[in-house]
Nucleic acid binder design. Structure first.
Lengths: 331, 331
DNA sequence: GACAATTTTGTAATCGATTACAATCCAAGT
DNA sequence: ACTTGGATTGTAATCGATTACAAAATTGTC
């Protein structure tokens, strides 16, 4: 493999000069620069970034930890992150945890091992203390999720108000007996959406039947199964708020499988606004999260941390939006 | 930051010994090992992987170049890759090209720059010669796509026979006037699927109306628009073979928008078998690609290349499968 | 207890760049 | 011609680990 010394030799200059041509061209005389560039060209030299990074103590790489890259919501956030990263000359190391807390923990080491300059977490199921500890020493930002009582910079929507908005919409349309299918309750964000649901019900003086609140795992299947459970229990609400579009679609499939119709017989409202939510029939009424923008903002925040710039607002809340389609009707 | 010398000092041994404890524990005496581990523990030492990698000239990282991570098909392949990668102690650097050939080229350098030990390309739109050149010096495998006439190891399905199978299925069901919506024809794989379509038509002695062959870009929108074009031209086939499920769904949406029904009025057959294809209504009849497995196999192949093991079969063809649902009917 | 064989540990070179500091060059000013 | 100061260039230290080789320690044998 051709190294900087080969180039230096060929161009008849020192390695320092070659290095300077590559990194601070303004400090070397034009004629020399040309000689060096010619040599680089001739030898097809590519600098070994490992060496540079070791010397500079920076990798120009950031780590993104995702619970499941297969989930279109997360992949869209990731794309937002990636866009800003490459624009700043950074590369993205991908950490898919497959929803496994242990693997999630494992990725924390990567920063200490200097394989990345910073990281954005799209999941924070693990030990909050461990994350805090790492965040004290390295640039870390949370996206989508957050850690209660932590000062780690965060980008997300306001899940409580988003869910409240969703539930109030149902209530305002005359629904009284409303079911809620939540995400896994060991995740803050799931608890927040549930909390928003409760708040809306309380504000409008409606009681929530505990049987109609069921814990899912954000997946299509869990939505389907929990709806079937409602049927089995003979406890039918007139509307259901599902904490993810995936689950909402599962719910609708279940309803259809029983020969009922959405929204005529039961209304369903989701959360996320995936691309498929508009293709699905009926079109899903849902709370839209600006996935791509969450990613962008998170990465911008991370860049600031890495560059040790001042970060004023540490918790960025982006606007969510109720997207009305056809899966909810007036009672 | 605490380095190996700090540990060595604390444990009262040389840096060599510390290093050995970490990498070849069997060569150091038990009591020493303990001392060292205690020091490591006490100082919370984490080795700087950059330094190790520079010395060893390996990164334990592989690069995956994807045209669009947001596409669920690719993210599933990626997941297969990732699974095998972590199982082998490798990390995944993500390169999303956003379907941009220039960015695709840019990623080729990463290997020469020693930021990754190998790469798997899920897209190969760029200059074949450039890829070949890199592949001559570094471990590279292609997944899904391939380069004509190249000996670069490849994992994919047989797109020609897959498409032929699809078209023959339609023909056997009595369809004669069949439309085909292809992927971008600058991609081999799109051309292959089109070729398979032609082969099937020829074998059964059917003529294909050139108006009914239109070039899409794999997206939902292009499927929708091209179907609308068929309507506008007044050229309706009884069945359409779309080269991706996304496009197939677009086609179906367009058909529905005209008040017609699938499969009653027009049959539609897709390609990929995305998760949504079974949720969509009507359930999509489609050619299933083993996305996760393609990723796994590709990464296994790459591991072999990296470890300089013998690679016997360089072109791995995985089995595709016709999945029959409700979007196609007998004429 | 002496010696050889073996195990364990230490010293210092090394990976391939960057960069502090020193040396050299060159043009302008006197 | 001789300084002088800024622009260029070179020398060698450095980043933080690994590892070849040498040295020291241990074990076994007679």
């Amino acid at each position: 493999m051709v190294g900087i010394v080969d180039v230096a030799k060929k161009a008849n200059v020192s390695t320092a000069t070659v290095s300077r041509v590559l990194t601070k061209p303004e400090t070397v005389r034009e004629t020399t620069t040309e000689k060096v560039l010619k040599a680089i060209e001739a030898l097809n030299y590519q600098p070994n970034l490992l060496a540079r990074q070791l010397r500079r103590l920076e990798t120009n790489t950031i780590l993104v930890v995702v619970p499941d890259i297969t989930n279109p919501f997360f992949s869209k956030v990731l794309r937002g992150i990636e866009a800003v990263a490459v624009a700043n000359g950074y590369q993205v190391l991908l950490g898919d945890t497959g929803n496994d807390v242990e693997r999630e923990k494992g990725y924390l080491n990567i920063l200490q091992q200097k394989k990345a300059d910073g990281m954005v977490l799209l999941t924070a199921r693990m030990d909050a203390a461990a994350v805090e500890e790492v965040a004290r020493c390295f640039p870390v930002v949370l996206a989508c999720e957050y850690i209660e009582g932590s000062r780690i910079p965060t980008v997300s929507i306001d899940n409580i108000s988003g869910a409240r908005k969703a539930a109030e919409y149902l209530i305002d349309l005359g629904h009284v007996r409303i079911g809620c299918i939540t995400g896994p309750l060991d995740i803050v964000l799931s608890r927040d959406r549930l909390k928003g649901f409760y708040q809306a019900m309380a504000r409008k003086n409606l009681i929530v039947d505990p049987v109609l609140v069921q814990e899912g795992d954000f997946s299509f299947d869990s939505g389907f199964n929990l709806m079937m459970k409602f049927f089995a229990l003979g406890q039918l609400p007139t509307a259901i708020f599902a904490a993810s579009d995936d689950m909402a679609m599962g719910v609708i499939k279940a309803i259809k499988s029983k020969g009922l119709k959405v929204p005529e017989d039961i209304s369903v409202l989701g959360f996320d606004n995936l691309k498929f939510s508009s293709i699905f029939e009926p079109g899903l009424t849902t709370i839209a999260q600006p996935a791509f923008e969450i990613g962008e903002k998170a990465m911008e925040l991370l860049m600031k941390l890495i560059n040790k710039e001042e970060v004023k607002r540490e918790q960025i809340i982006l606007a969510d939006q109720l997207v009305v389609r056809e899966s909810v009707r007036t009672i």
